[in-house]
């Protein structure tokens, strides 16, 4: 298992290779990318800021929880911070497991808990030149995976 907050571009393929083992017949990969529309407004880019020391620890806790709950040590997650362009990957999670169902479940667990607990914030840049911190409490909060 491994997790990190990084400032370099993410390489999902490298995460897949990192978790690969012949014991595992299933690998789930989640990649979150910067999209071009939020609440009807055209988005041109995104800044991610983290409380790095706490974010690293919280993310490591979540990955360790996934390892314990779903019975595989093959879990890696990286979250990128800094200025990202449209289409750039902001988060990548790879999970390998002997079987597909817990591979999907563990991957889902990591992204949902990350969005709920890890102190990271994003500021959207809009086509009209303005910028705004995203406040997800205006929308339905993601629930913890079971």
């Amino acid at each position: 298992m491994r997790s990190a907050i990084v400032t370099r571009p993410l390489d999902p393929g490298a995460l897949l290779r990192e978790v690969a083992t012949t014991r595992c017949g299933a690998t789930a990969l989640f990649v979150g990318t910067v999209r071009d529309l939020h609440d009807g407004r055209a988005v041109t880019g995104m800044d991610y800021e983290a409380y790095a020391a706490m974010a690293e620890r919280e993310l490591a806790d979540i990955v360790a929880e996934a390892v314990a709950r779903f019975g595989t040590g093959q879990v890696v997650c990286e979250h990128r911070t800094g200025a990202l362009a449209l289409g750039d990957a902001s988060v990548a999670i790879a999970v390998a497991h002997p079987h597909r169902s817990p591979a999907f479940d563990a991957c889902r667990y990591v992204i949902e808990e990350l969005k709920r607990r890890v102190p990271i914030w994003k500021r959207e840049h809009y086509a009209d030149g303005t910028r705004q911190w995203v406040d997800p409490t205006g929308a339905a909060r993601p629930r913890a995976a079971r």
Binding site: A50, Y51, V91, K115, R117, I120, W121, K122, W133, V134
Partner: peptide, 8 residues
Amino acid sequence: VIPPVAGG
């Protein structure tokens, strides 16, 4: 003091 988190 932590604003609503918005990672992912």
